[in-house]
Amino acid sequence: MPDKNVLLMVKNVSKEFPVKKNKLYAVSDVSFSVSRGETLGLVGESGCGKSTLAKMIAGSLPVSTGSITLDGVDYTGLSAREFRKFRRNIQMVFQDPLSSFSPRMRIGTYLCEPRINYDHISRQEAMEEAGVLLEKVGLPVEFLNRYPHELSGGQLQRVAIARAIAINPKLLICDEATGALDVSIQNVIAKLLVDLVEEKNIGCIFIGHDLALVRSVTQHIAIMYLGRIVEYLDSETLEEKCMHPYTRALLEAIFDVYCDQNEDIKLLTGEPPSPLVVHKGCPFAQRCERCRNECLENRPELAEAGPNHLVACFNPL
């Protein structure tokens, strides 16, 4: 993924958690990059390590091995003090709108916080900016005096986005940011995000489990399975070009509104294996119908399969 405009570089990042005598491999050897103005989608089922990866990129969780650089600065080794200053460059929007708000803090105060903390501007100044921000995300200025429980989920998510962009971060991470919302609101938020990323020319990582939605807001998609990226490809041509059996399975698991009821569902049997066990072969082998002997013996590495297309499979589609 060579690009002169590269903003974020994630290189061979792994994360292990000690579990009793064992080790849980949450993320293993993940590498990718995000350019300015680009939105990368991270898709996978629960437990695939996408949220752990997001936390490491946001700096809330230290990496076990590997490096993450933003604008040429490797921030995995920064001291706590240095990192507090650096942190403004990466902001995050979470899934559950209500739990990202302190129940007893007014929307205005919530929006002012980052500017006051990082730039030490006066409260009054920050409040004026907060009003502008609210209008930018399409909410009335009166909301400054409201409490979180007085707003709907979609409105809260807009406020969370407004707060994230208040300090002009270089990278925005959305962890299932639209997952808890109704479909019509989902689209509004998705559109707002796309516009903001374009306008501010920032990088964005959009994490989700709904491949169809992620595809609609991103340029590239990385599919994760059991802590690894198994395929990386262009969003636009996702359906035609995807080569990994798991990506195909994810696509087939989506029920289309205009589907044929008489057509059988193509089922992926079983469930993802435990991340506590180290697999010799391909992590997907047990559930894969294209599995061969080779797949059980060796692990396929992510390899170039075309322009902007990487896939980790011995027997791709």
């Binding site: 939105t39 479909v183 019509s184 989902q186 689209n187 998705a190 559109k191 796309v194 374009e198 709904d210 491949l211 169809a212 939605l213 595809r215 609609s216 807001v217 991103t218 340029q219 969003s235 636009e236 996702l238 359906e239 696509l251 989506i254 289309d256 509104v257 205009y258």
Partner: peptide
């Protein structure tokens, strides 16, 4: 309901569902 919805609301609801191969916001 799916193929010949009478109400605008039903139509909007169907349109809002993200679809593989459907419209994209990103450029």
């Amino acid at each position: 309901i799916i193929f010949h919805p009478k109400e605008q609301y039903t139509r909007d609801l169907m349109d809002a569902v993200p679809k593989i191969g459907g419209k994209r916001f990103a450029r």
